[in-house]
Write a protein that binds this DNA or RNA. Sequence first.
RNA 1: CGGGGUGUGGCGCAGUUGGUAGCGCACCUGUUUUGGGAACAGGGGGUCGGAGGUUCGAGCCCUCUCACCCCGACCA
Length: 569
Amino acid sequence: MKLSNYLIATLKEAPSDAETKSHQLMVRAGMIRKIAAGVYNFLPTGLRVFRKVENIIRDEMNKAGAIEVMMPFVTPADLWEKSGRWDIYGKELLRFKDRADRDFCLGPTHEEVVTDMVDREVKSYKNLPITIYQIQPKFRDEIRPRFGVMRAREFTMKDAYSFDVNELEAEKSYIKMFNAYKRIFERCGLTFKAVEADSGNIGGSFSHEFMVLAETGEDLVLSCNTCEFAANVETTGIKDVSIARNDKDFEPLAEVSTPKMTSVEEVSSFMNVSSEDIVKTLFLESDEELIAVLVRGDHELSLTKLKKFLGSDFLDLADNKVLKENNIVKGFCGPIGVNFKIYSDNSIKDLTNFITGANKDDYHCQGVNYDRDFLVESFGDFREAFDGDSCPIEGCTGSLESTRGIEVGHVFKLGTKYSESMNAKFTNQDGKEKNYYMGCYGIGVGRVVAAAVEQNNDENGIKFPTALAPFQVVIIPTEKTKGPALSKAEEIYDYLTNSSFEVALDDRQESPGVKFKDSELIGIPFQIRIGPKSLAKGVVELKNRLTGDILEFDQNDYDGIREKLNELF
RNA sequence: CGGGGUGUGGCGCAGUUGGUAGCGCACCUGUUUUGGGAACAGGGGGUCGGAGGUUCGAGCCCUCUCACCCCGACCA
C-alpha cells in the first residue's frame, strides 16, 4: 500500500470525550470515528486490524469444526415471542415496526434465529453434532455506551452455537470451543484469563468468560492466591461459615431516634457501632412479587446471585413509586412487621441483637433478632465477594485477590433452554423426538481490538502485537523529493510485497519526523528507513517498534531483510 | 431514568458589561527546508447545536428543544 494514496487519519490531539487509553489512541491513530453515541466508523487502518482479529477467529473456528453462516441483523418479533424473550429483554432490545406495522428488533444476539434455522434444516441425530457461527453486527441499546468500541451499542460479534444430542456431547462441544478461544486470544497476543461467570440474559447453566487483564476493565475478577479458582465477582460464591447463634443473649427490641440517618455509615457513626452490626433491608421487585432482602451493613447485595437463587427472569430494586405505594420508608427500612417474603444473606445467621431500620422516619431498631422479631423465608449466598474473602473452593484455605478485566469472550452451556421454549427437536436413534442440547459462544471483535490497544501501548502510541498490526512493515524514505531514497524504497517495497508481506510505503510528501511518528502511533511493528544518511553508508535500517532496536542491512541485501522479517513474524 | 456538565471551522480551545467571531494544530498556494510531529509569507473554511423570544443590535440574556460527555442507578 502506498500511503500517498491511502487514508492515514492521524490526529495530534484526542477528542475530549475519549477517556481510556485505547479509545484515545484508536481515535488518534485514525482507526475509528464516532458518528453517534456508541456507533462508530472504522477507518482503513482500524478495519485492517479488525480483519486480522476476525480472520484469526474464523481460522480457529473452522479448525474446531464450526461452520460459518450469516444471519440477519434485523429479526422478527415472533421468534422472540416464541422464546419468551420479547417481554424479558427490556430496553436494550431496539425494537421497531416495518411499514405493515409488524414488530422487529435489531438482533442483540442470535439464539432464537439460529435455533429456528437449525430446527428447520436438521432433522436427525445423524446430522449432529453441529456448531454454527457467524461474524456479524449486533445492536444492544446500552444504557451507557463508553470507552469507544469497547462498549459500543453497535458492535461486531463472532457468535457460535453448538447443537448436540445430549448433555455429555454438548460438554464436548463446549470444551472444543473453550480450547479454540484460548488459541484465538493467544494468537492475538493478549494476556488473558478464563474465569467462571454468570450467564446473565443469555441463560443457561454454566459459563466461562475470557478476560483480558487491564486496569480499565469494567469487570472485577476474583482469583484465589492458592488454588486455580478464578471467577467474575458477579458469580463468586461465599463459603457459608456461619455458626449457631446463642439464643440466650437476646436483648429487648428497642427503637432509637436516628434523625436523618439514612445510610449505614451515618447510622454506624451516630450509634457508635460497627457497620457489621447493622443489617440493610432492600426491597426488590421480582417477576411477580415484592420481596425484602437482608445483607450485613458492610456487604453489598449481589443481584446476580439472588436472581439465580430465585430463578426469576426479572429482579431489580423497587423504585420510589413502588416503595411509596407499599408504605416503605426509604432510609429507614427494616424487616420487622413487613408482610413480604424476607430473604437473608448467610452472614446474618450469626448475628444477634443487630440494628435495622424501624420502618418509620428517623427511627432505627436495635436488639433485633430473626425468628423472634421477624421470620426469614430463606437464607442463602446473596452478597458480593470482595478482595480478601476466603476462596469458595471446598478444602482450599486461600483468599481472593481482585483484578480488573475486559470481557472479550464468553462461552455458555445453554442446555435445552431455547430448544424447549422454541420447540426445536431432532429425531433420535430410537425414533423419538428430542430437544437439542445447545451451547453458545461469543467474542466481541471490536472489543478484542480495543483490549489489544489497552494492553499494548506506550507514549508514542500503539504497540500492536505482530499478528494484529495493520501493516507488518512500513518503508520510510526520509527525503521528500524524488531521489535515490525513494527509488530504493520502491524497489524494496516491490520485493517485500512479492514476498507476501503486508507492506506500507510512506511516499507522502511529509517530513521524516511526521512519518516516524505516524508509524509508531498506528502501531506498525517494523520501519525500514532509507535516506541520504543511510545510503551514504550503503545501508538501510530496520527498526523494531516493540524493542526500539535498529538493525542495518546492506542496501542491496533484500534477501537478508526478508529473512529477518520472516524470523520476526 | 436521576444528578451534573459541555455544545464556537476537521481536532483542541478563547471569546469581557450584549456592539460586525478569534487562537493553536490540521488544510491550500509559494519559497526555503528534509533522520523525530520544519520555517516564513499568503490563503480558504464558521447558519456560534436547533427553534422561538427580548433588544436598534444576541456566540453572550430568556424559553423550549436536540446532541454529546461524566457520575449514579444496590444500601432503603
